[in-house]
Computed example of a mutant assay.
Amino acid sequence: MEFRDLKAQYNKYKNEIDSAIQEVLNNTNFIGGKEVDTLEKGLAEYVGVKHCITCANGTEAMTLLMMAWDIKVGDAVFVPDFTFFSTGEIVSFRGATPIFVDVDRDTFNIDTVKLERAINKVLKESKLNPKVIIPVDLFGLPADHIEIERIAKKYKLKVLEDAAQGFGGSINGKKACSFGDAATTSFFPAKPLGCYGDGGAIFTNDDALADLLNSYKVHGKGENKYDNVRIGVNSRLDTIQAAILNVKLTAFINHELDDVNRVYRFYTERLKGIVETPFIPNSYVSSFAQYTIKLKSREERDALQTKLKENGIPSMIYYVKPMHKQDAFRALEYDDSDFEVTNKLCDTVLSLPIHPYIREIDVEKVCNSIVKILNR
């Protein structure tokens, strides 16, 4: 059993993917080919925004926005404590200070009450300038963007939606990657929409921002790549990856999002009352980058993971360490008691195999094993 079975997906679309790759090889347009333009238009249309700017990976997508917004030393950027390292890393990379905020226990996403409290604390201390909120759509579920946008407007902050795991999710039909001033996603292979290497994208309705990002990602180009009007970076999506993603985007729209939500319902029906299953608020849709359950303690979680492995069932822990405890952020001062929820989640969460191609018999095996192991 695979945790996320990329082989099954490839086997289903082997002819289309092989053909798309071969066309790039035949045309030898390995950088900036027509496949990239097609992908950017398709992604923008699906999400419902004016501009999609592809780049080398999801981390650089966020970094490019930090550059475009001139985030620097002395600025404060608000980031959830329970998420992958890169969301805080890109803040420190620019010399700014990440302000970690505890998360909501049910959704795993940034707690908006604690967010506003953190903003006011920074304002009161007057040592940093609050500039940006980076809500993360964790495990595929959009953050509470309605409330986050209200808070951002109140304090005149920008919002960068980190939808690395959230592509395909929605709130009241409004798609992930369309919230905030700009949004980013990742095409890492295991993501809801993944390529066969690294890749990322930025989404925005801001024409001027899109132009600036397109310059920054190609060495600060002006009229062409040999006319350099600013200091930029080299962050382009390879044409072969774009060709693969064009095939996968069609599959994602046609059936994969529906299929992974069918698996979610299957899991939840069978595990109800056995473990704490994912909570999806009304009017929200998750793309289920992960299906994450909660156990009662670290001991119970670790024992369950060990027994599942013995039964040939893979599982993962996202995340074993909070952001505020990462060694890379050791120079920052935090009160551990401010992160009660995140600390508890790191001890009790476990993600189970989920993807659009998992067989019902495999889900049954996972569920039956959990029931037997926990004796509930």
Rank of each mutant, 00 (worst) to 15 (best):
A328M: 11
E16W: 06
F339T: 00
V275A: 06
V49L: 09
S283R: 13
G168A: 09
V263Y: 03
N11A: 14
G95L: 12
D102I: 00
T28K: 15
L332N: 08
F85R: 02
I146T: 13
F85K: 04
R230K: 14
K12W: 06
L6S: 08
S92A: 14
L345P: 00
V363P: 04
I354Y: 11
A164K: 01
K296L: 04
K50V: 01
D347G: 01
A183Y: 10
V103T: 03
E310C: 01
I171Q: 09
A242G: 08
A208S: 13
S369P: 05
A331G: 00
R117P: 00
V363K: 07
T277P: 08
S178L: 11
E60H: 13
V91E: 12
D37L: 08
S235P: 09
N26R: 11
S186Q: 01
D238W: 06
P353M: 05
T59W: 01
F266L: 07
Y13N: 10
M67N: 10
T54A: 11
L237E: 06
K344M: 03
I354V: 15
K41C: 01
K294L: 05
N246Q: 07
S126K: 15
N368R: 10
K248Y: 14
P98C: 10
Q9I: 13
E340V: 00
R298T: 00
D259M: 11
M1L: 14
M67W: 12
L123F: 07
K272M: 06
I244C: 08
K272Q: 12
R301M: 11
A8H: 02
E360K: 15
V91C: 12
S126N: 15
G180A: 04
D227A: 10
H255Q: 14
M62F: 01
S315D: 05
E299H: 07
K121N: 12
D211I: 04
C346N: 12
E89S: 14
F329Q: 00
Y196S: 07
L64K: 05
E256M: 12
E45K: 15
A243Y: 10
L245R: 08
A163F: 06
I274L: 14
K344N: 02
H324V: 01
C177A: 03
E340T: 03
D302Q: 12
F93D: 08
V122F: 10
V24Y: 10
N343P: 02
N15A: 14
D37Q: 07
F100C: 01
G222Y: 09
L352H: 11
T185P: 05
K158F: 11
L237D: 06
D162G: 02
A243P: 09
D5T: 05
V24I: 09
D258W: 01
F266N: 12
D111P: 03
L304H: 11
H51Q: 06
L374D: 04
G194C: 02
R4K: 15
K217G: 02
L128S: 08
I99K: 11
D106V: 00
I373E: 05
I244Y: 11
E161N: 13
S337N: 13
S369W: 12
I119G: 08
V285W: 04
K365M: 09
